[in-house]
Amino acid sequence: MKKLVKSLKFWIVILLLPMVLVGCSSWIMDFDSDFVSDEFVSREQLQVGDISLSYLISGDPNGQRVIFLHGTPGDAGGNWYEMLRNVPDGYQFIAIDRPGFGHTKPRKQVVELDRQAAVLEPLLVTRNGKGTILVGHSLGGPVVTNAAANFPDKVAGIVVAAGALDPDLEEVLFIQHVGNVPPFVWLLDKTAKHSNKELIALEDELRLLQPKLAGIKQHVRIVHGTADELVPYENVPFMEKEMTGAASFKVTTIDGMNHFLQWRSRNELREAVFDITKSLEDERKTAAR
C-alpha cells in the first residue's frame, strides 16, 4: 500500500478519475438542464409508488400521446425541449425525467429496466382506439422496449433511437468499477454516479430483457446512425433478429450520423412516430370494415 500511495501513476489516476469516468459514462456533465417550464412547455409531477415523476408536456390534450425518454445521463428539458416546443397537430408530447435524473424525486438511482418501465404505466393512455407511442434514446431504448413487453395493451408502438439492446456489445471499463466504490465514488456528482451505475448494470439488464423481445407485438421503428461510436450500429441487426413478433418492423439508417439523434435527426424521429401512427390508423380502418 505504501508503494502504491507513493506511485505517481496512482495519484494521476486519482486526480483524473472524475474526467475519465465522465468520458466512460457517455458525456456526463453536459446534458443536464435546469429547465422547468415556459409558455410552450409545462412541467407536471406524478406520484408513482415512492417516485415523484417529473415530466414535461405540450400539445393537444386529446391527441395521440407520445412519450420521450432520454438516455444516460440527461433529462427531459436538455434532450427533448425542441421536440416539445414544436408538437405537430393532433399529438400530445411528454418527456420524462427518468428516475435518478432531472427533477424526478427522490434523486435515487434505479438501474432495473422493469422498475424504470413501471413508472411509465400511469402515463400510458388510449385515445381514439390508439395506445401510447414511446420513443427512447440510447439507454431509453431498452426502457421503452421493456415497457412494450410489459404493457402490451397500453403501448401501441416504440421508436428505438440509437438504442443499446445487444448485451454482447456492452463493455464496462475497469475504471468505471473503480469509480463505483469509495473513496473514488465520492469524487463524482450525483448525475455522474447514477449514470455510471446504470452503465455497469446494463449488460445484465439487457440479458433479462432479451427473452421478452420476440414477444413484442407492437409496431417497432429503429432509427440509428452508422457513425455512432457510443452505441454501435451493430445493435440494429440484433434487434432485427430478436423482435420477430412485431406487428411491423422498420429501420431508418442515417449514414454518417453519430449518437445524438435528438438534436441532429429530429425529423427522422418525427417521421418514425408518424409512420407508427399511420400503421395504427390503417389497423383501425381495417377493423372497422
Rank of each mutant, 00 (worst) to 15 (best):
A192S: 15
L208K: 15
L123T: 06
L124F: 07
L134N: 00
K108W: 01
K105M: 07
V144A: 04
K212R: 15
I175W: 07
V155A: 04
E170A: 08
E203W: 01
H177Y: 15
R107A: 13
E198H: 13
L120T: 06
H137D: 03
D189C: 10
Q176W: 01
A149S: 12
K193I: 08
G100M: 08
I175Q: 09
K197Y: 12
R107G: 10
E121H: 13
N180W: 08
D204W: 00
L199S: 09
A164Y: 04
R127V: 11
K130W: 03
A156W: 00
D153H: 08
D114Y: 03
G90D: 12
A117R: 06
E112S: 15
L169P: 04
L124E: 13
L113V: 08
L120F: 08
P122F: 14
K154L: 14
P167L: 09
F101R: 05
Y91G: 04
Y91N: 00
I96W: 02
G140N: 03
V155W: 04
A95C: 10
D153T: 11
E171P: 01
D166Y: 09
N196S: 15
E170F: 01
M83A: 08
A148I: 09
V160K: 00
M83F: 15
L123C: 05
T191Y: 12
Q116W: 03
T145F: 04
D168H: 09
L199R: 09
E171R: 14
G157R: 00
T191Q: 11
D204N: 12
L124V: 14
V144C: 02
L173I: 03
G102P: 06
P122R: 13
F93G: 03
L113C: 10
E198F: 07
S138Y: 05
A161C: 15
T191L: 02
E121N: 11
T132H: 03
N128D: 15
N86I: 02
F184H: 04
D189F: 13
K130D: 05
K108Y: 02
P152C: 08
G90S: 10
F174S: 15
